[in-house]
């Protein structure tokens, strides 16, 4: 059975363009070594992710480090090729697996 962590591995693209989601990267790539690489947050806003660490807390929460080295927890809902993040402000945004 594939673990929750394994299901996150790979490259994901953001599908939501809500104003509250624009601070988050367009692409995020989760690697098995616990690091992520992200690009494409809009200019002038918080590039919430760039290069840093990530870790599954449980089946509903994930921790991701940010550009200022804070580690933030997000709720998530994961299906086969999509996951939805919910940040602490209640902003929900969808990512789809591209690779």
């Amino acid at each position: 059975m594939i673990s929750q962590k394994e299901r996150f591995l790979g490259l994901w693209k953001k599908q939501t363009d809500l104003p509250c989601s624009q601070i988050y990267p367009i692409f995020i790539e989760f690697h098995s070594n616990g690091l992520h690489y992200s690009t494409g947050a809009k200019v002038g806003l918080l590039s919430a992710c760039d290069t840093g660490s990530w870790e599954i807390i449980n089946s509903r929460q994930i921790k991701i480090s940010t550009i200022s080295d804070t580690i933030l927890a997000y709720k998530y809902l994961l299906s086969d090729d999509e996951f939805t993040f919910i940040d602490s402000q209640g902003c929900e945004f969808l990512y789809q697996k591209v690779q």
């Binding site: 200019v43 002038g44 806003l45 918080l46 590039s47 550009i67």
Partner: peptide, 8 residues
Amino acid sequence: KFGTDVAP
């Protein structure tokens, strides 16, 4: 501001 006004 860090990240808000200037970002990589």
